[in-house]
Design a binder for these strands. Structure first.
Lengths: 237, 237
DNA sequence: CGGGATCCGTAAAGATACTG
DNA sequence: CAGTATCTTTACGGATCCCG
């Protein structure tokens, strides 16, 4: 358990003992991103089984990365420790390294609309939307089969954004028709939202203000090194 | 193999796919430290099996971290790629984080003279020794049983340092009698060589010049944040 | 529904021996 | 020296079930 036993005199080896077990760094990312509850973390780390999440959280607690906390209502939760917080910049640097070095073409050849939407969901900045109201954005990927074509992001300031795969039957504030590759590329920071719009790979119809403030609320991957107006590498299909 | 399949839109997840498999980062450390040959890497990464090293090197090559090279004599070898070199500062930061945060008391309660000597061996700076000659340093840990008490470092400038567990029958230039905990603490950078000497936990007898230049050739863990004259936390047993 | 525990089949990792 | 081949052990991942 605690003695996977690399060379105990090499700090890197000690670090590996802690961060190497599968999912550990991703759980840490989720915690850093604000998740506290078990199922909240689980939603943020797609693919992990509850069994393994439970196990990892215990290991991480034992290693001093995570602390169990009880809310005033007695509800359980998890937070990062100071030690884990010190690790954040390292993980950030790791993400930037990966973003710089991972083959874009390979990534853009393995497209997945649902996963993309799930990721975007987590990065929508709801504070940019009018408070007290619900903002609904409908995404349409015309190239996909009907069952995978439409997605709805339902956002209220102060609440987590909902992703709907079925029509939520709510008034839509903004329709976005997108080429999947272009949307992926823009979201990953390999091109820009504006360049995809200019080349008609992204078409926005609806609330003018939402369109004008697009870059404010559709926050791109935080690992992108360059700002939003960087050069686009390539775009539509 | 390549599709352990975390979330493919999260750069950290992509990075984890690459660096998470056991031993990967330690192999990278060895390569960065100058190892090129298979068995050279293997010696530098204590505990790895040849099977796994072979497998990892292939995976790392496929991920773009490692490049196979043939020397002019046709001998096989491995080097890091530019992508791997960019990762070096991240690994360095990871090591510093671990060095800062890992429990010293716990580490100092699991002492291992042989592993310590093996680690020191790799960090001896032979360029500080007189060129063309062989310098032999004998370590004695009086507290240990006879079979684990004595170690010899045999160094020649320009060559890797040898660690002997049996008397090499060569003239000894410097005798070091040490308390194991103190030697470990000093080497890890949790105390200083001088403070351990002052408290008699380290006793050096032999070549005056070697003793005077001790800090020059006995290089401490490169992950220690503070310089050699930092405050000692604690020392002998 | 949140927060797990149990069981089981598969996929890695570890130990050892052996070969070109 | 530079690896392969083989075998055993451990970890992971999936499904199911339990409890408040």
């Amino acid at each position: 358990m605690s003695s996977d036993c690399y060379d105990s005199f090499c700090p890197v080896a000690k670090a590996c003992d802690i961060i190497e077990p599968r999912w550990t760094l991703l759980i840490l990312c989720e915690l850093s991103h604000g998740a506290t509850r078990f199922n909240e973390i689980r939603r943020g780390v797609p693919g992990i089984s509850p069994t393994l999440l439970s196990k990892r959280l215990k290991e991480m607690e034992q290693h001093g990365l995570v602390r169990r906390v009880e809310s005033d209502a007695g509800e359980p939760g998890y937070t990062t420790t100071a030690m884990a917080d010190e690790l954040k910049p390292v993980v950030q640097a790791l993400g930037k390294w990966a973003h710089r070095n991972i083959d874009k073409e390979v990534s853009l050849s393995k497209l997945d609309a649902r996963l993309l939407m799930w990721n975007m969901r987590q990065k929508i900045d709801t504070s940019a939307f009018p408070p007290g109201t619900t903002t609904v954005i409908q995404f349409t990927y015309p190239e996909l089969i009907e069952s995978e074509r439409h997605y709805w992001l339902v956002a209220r300031p102060g609440h987590p954004v909902d992703l709907c795969l079925l029509d939520p039957r709510h008034e839509v504030d903004l329709f976005i028709r997108a080429d999947l590759k272009a949307m992926t590329s823009a979201w990953m920071g390999w091109s820009t939202l504006r360049s995809e719009i200019n080349s008609n790979s992204l078409v926005l119809i609806g609330d003018r203000k939402l369109i004008a403030t697009l870059e404010t609320w559709m926050v791109r991957s935080s690992y992108a090194a360059a700002p939003e107006h960087q050069v686009a590498t390539r775009a539509s299909a």
